[in-house]
């Protein structure tokens, strides 16, 4: 499979959120605004790429029987690095995402890719897989965050789109709005995925 095809596939057909429905807890919880979605997505991408690379390198060393604990230690290490790094550089973003960063450890996308891909493939392929899966995840989080921010607070990436005294559809910022938006985005993304698959 060539690189471009794989990229397209991980954005639409096999997108972790809309195609595989993995990692929905951080997806629903952090996407109250486009910026939060982007931050969470990029943090996850970093962890995904790093853990995929390390696990791919160690794939012949790690005994089969303890592979899950070994993967989790690797993943948890990178999550902690992201947590501390973000606190040191993007302090304000960390204040909003802080509660959810440690949860990346148990994000099934990362363990899923480690188990299903990185532990069986070479370094370069695993790196690309982590990168594309991460970007696909970021992409869906960004869309979901944008929809919720625009409808819920009437702004996008912090820029106000409607006059301040207009009332917005507050429910989209709250938890039910996350489920509502995700449902409609799933419909749209699966339609796109079907068109792409049908075109082949």
């Amino acid at each position: 499979m060539n690189v471009k095809e794989k990229l397209l596939k991980s954005f639409f057909v096999e997108n972790p959120v809309t195609g595989l429905l993995l990692g929905l807890c951080p997806t629903l919880a952090t996407t109250t605004s486009a910026e939060n979605g982007l931050g969470m997505g990029l943090a996850t991408t970093f962890v995904l790429v790093s853990s995929n690379v390390v696990i791919s390198l160690l794939r012949n060393v790690i005994p089969n029987r303890v592979r899950i604990p070994a993967f989790i230690v690797v993943i948890a290490t990178f999550v902690t690095i992201v947590d501390m790094g973000m606190q040191a550089t993007l302090y304000d973003l960390h204040k909003t995402l802080g509660l959810f960063i440690p949860l990346i450890v148990v994000n099934c996308i990362i363990l899923g890719r480690a188990e299903a891909f990185a532990s069986k493939n070479n370094l370069w392929d695993s790196f690309l897989d982590g990168l594309f899966m991460g970007l696909g995840f970021t992409f869906s989080l960004f869309i979901l965050g944008s929809v919720r921010e625009i409808l819920g607070t009437g702004s996008w990436l912090g820029m106000a789109l409607v006059p301040g005294d207009w009332s917005t559809i507050l429910v989209f910022v709250l938890a039910p709005g996350a489920f509502l938006s995700l449902g409609f985005i799933l419909v749209g993304m699966n339609k796109i995925a079907r068109v792409i698959e049908g075109g082949k």
Partner: peptide, 8 residues
């Protein structure tokens, strides 16, 4: 098994 986990 123990050795690898400890090293990691």
């Amino acid at each position: 098994i123990i050795g690898v986990l400890v090293l990691i």
